[in-house]
């Protein structure tokens, strides 16, 4: 049970850690100042959530590690994030589309986790859900603004959606870890979130004049650690180099 919970918490924490780092790569590079600050805020929120999830993961593991060690001293095969969040940023449109696809799932999943039978999980979910609610409002607005914008922004958003859609299904694929925790009332069944998710993103895409792909094919392997894309290793190189080069450095 604790083993399963540890895995599940790594998944939540690694999602926010990896996406938070990806989003932070925009810092100083976003197309306008206001978006730059907004993206940096989102990245910081996600890193904050990571501290909570990985902090609890370390506590559940009970092996003397802490959130920092889990974040900075695991290699690729130890990561349990969805493949979606490790994909490179691409253009601004693809970054915001990836953000929206994640936020939409995140806000639904956190809503369910708030009713977890484990009060520690429920508490973190309640705190994170307020940030997630703002994130999804903002990313949905941007998807609508760019999707229903100029011919060029529309084309870029449609291309981003088609590129990213095959990574969405992994959110809803359950395994033994999920099953054990679902049985104990700790987490929701991943598959049970799909209907609400599709209805929500479908509504936003309709407003954004974007066509939702029909295919249900999905890349997977991120959340169970079986297979990551080639991009994660490069990202970890830049994220972890300081702790690797100067172990234990702090300020």
């Amino acid at each position: 049970m604790d083993k399963d919970l540890f895995q599940y918490l790594l998944r939540l924490g690694d999602n926010t850690l990896v996406l938070g780092h990806r989003v932070s790569e925009w810092c100083g590079h976003a197309p306008v100042l206001e978006e730059d600050i907004a993206l940096a805020n989102t990245a910081l929120d996600l890193i904050g959530q990571t501290q909570l999830w990985l902090g609890l993961a370390a506590e559940v593991e009970g092996a003397g590690r802490d959130a920092d060690k889990l974040a900075m001293l695991r290699d690729i095969w130890g990561f349990r994030n969805l493949l979606l969040v490790e994909l490179p940023n691409g253009d601004f449109g693809r970054t915001l589309m990836r953000q929206f696809l994640f936020d939409a799932w995140q806000v639904i999943n956190l809503g369910r986790l708030m009713k977890s039978s484990d009060p520690r999980v429920a508490e973190i979910a309640a705190k994170a859900s307020k940030e997630a609610a703002y994130h999804v409002e903002r990313s949905a607005d941007t998807v609508v603004g760019l999707g229903d914008g100029t011919a060029e922004s529309h084309a870029r958003m449609q291309a981003a959606l088609e590129y990213l859609w095959p990574y969405v299904g992994e959110m809803f694929v359950g395994d033994d870890v999920d099953a054990a925790l679902v049985a104990a009332g700790v987490v929701p069944d991943p598959a049970s979130l799909r209907e609400e998710y599709d209805a929500f993103v479908g509504r936003i895409f309709a407003t954004a004049t974007l066509e939702m792909p029909e295919s249900r094919f999905t890349h997977k392997g991120g959340k169970n650690g079986a297979f990551h894309t080639e991009h994660l290793g490069h990202m970890l190189c830049s994220m972890q180099w300081l702790q690797r080069a100067y172990p234990g450095a702090s300020w």
Binding site: V32, L33, E34, I37, A38, Y134, E137, D141, G145
Partner: peptide, 20 residues
């Protein structure tokens, strides 16, 4: 002051720029 495409986004941008 800040730039935004519409009033709604202006409020969101203000939230991110000035109330963090």
């Amino acid at each position: 002051s800040l730039h935004a495409p519409d009033a709604e986004m202006a409020i969101k941008n203000a939230r991110d720029v000035y109330t963090r």
